[in-house]
Simulated scan of single mutants.
Amino acid sequence: MTTMVQADVRRHELAAFLRSRRERITPEQVGLERGTRRRTPGLRREEVAHLSAVGVTWYTWLEQARDIHVSVQVLDALARTLMLDRSERAHLFQLADANDPTPAASCTGVTDAVRELLDQLDPMPACVQNSRYDILAYNRTYARLLCDLDAVPPEDRNCMLLVHTNPQWRESIVHLEEAMRLMAARLRASMAGHLSEPAWKMLVKRLQAESPEFRENWERYEIVASRTKTKQFRNAHVGLLTLHHTDLWLSPELGARMVTYAPVDEESRERLARLYAMESGSALQPAASALA
């Protein structure tokens, strides 16, 4: 089969896949009213286009298998609008002959030895992040430090996204406004070496669309380098935690890093141990007394 024929087959498969997923999403699932004249099963093309911030004509051509270029930013937006799971998202990018730039596609820098080290650090919370704040791996205590991280889709496991859009994550940070401003400044500093990379541009564009707080902080053009500091978290299960944040770089180019949180005092140490025991036993129950 020639390359041209293969591309034509792929475009038709992509068109059929998009139609099938569009038809299974109800208007109510995306916050739209059904109305009385709706004949199309699921969403209309113009609704998908609007929700994905792409042109109606362009999206129509995509479902008609026209020979048009599809950027990774558009594919990412379509995947979110159509509520694709991890396997469906991977299929979408494969049909479009594109590489998914999100951390759900790969976990660069996380070896088996690093994962073993993360597990050995329990009950001290630890994770591996890249300079874009994608969470690539984490241990059991970190999984419940700020929210139920296992319940977050892999492509959304990003500290910048979580601190601006996840209610449970936001409630867990004692000094939220300071944290958001500092993180935006660190992201801008890191982005200097990645200005043309789609994944970075996608992250910033999504944050600007979903968070007024990020837009305000981003426009400050503040720059802050990575640094060790003491942080406080208000965990829903064990209460206030005061922890030393340390970055341990895993590669010479300052890409992936292991983020660790060591307890500052004995009370925080005991509460981390309790959180790990609760997580290991799958017995996590919020307690009002724990929030003191």
Rank of each mutant, 00 (worst) to 15 (best):
L195W: 02
R19Y: 06
A256L: 00
R19L: 13
E267M: 04
W249G: 05
E171Y: 05
A273Q: 13
G55F: 06
L146S: 04
C147T: 04
R188F: 10
T102A: 07
E47R: 05
R11Q: 04
F17T: 00
R66W: 09
L118D: 02
Q94L: 06
S282Y: 15
C159R: 03
D67G: 06
R144P: 02
E13D: 15
D8F: 02
D97F: 05
K201A: 14
L82W: 03
E210F: 12
W200S: 00
S52T: 06
E253F: 05
Y59V: 08
Y261F: 15
C127E: 10
E116F: 11
L240V: 08
L195S: 04
V70L: 15
H237I: 05
A256Y: 01
A288W: 05
I25F: 14
R10L: 15
S131D: 12
T246E: 15
H69Y: 15
V152T: 03
E47H: 11
R132S: 06
L51K: 01
M1W: 13
V5L: 15
R206E: 08
T230I: 13
A225T: 09
G31K: 03
L149G: 00
S226D: 11
H194S: 03
R115C: 08
R220N: 05
C159K: 01
T230C: 08
V9Q: 11
R170G: 10
R269Y: 14
L146Q: 04
R89N: 01
L275H: 07
A292R: 11
P153R: 06
T3G: 12
A225V: 07
A192D: 13
V30A: 14
E63K: 11
V204H: 07
E47S: 08
W61E: 11
M1C: 06
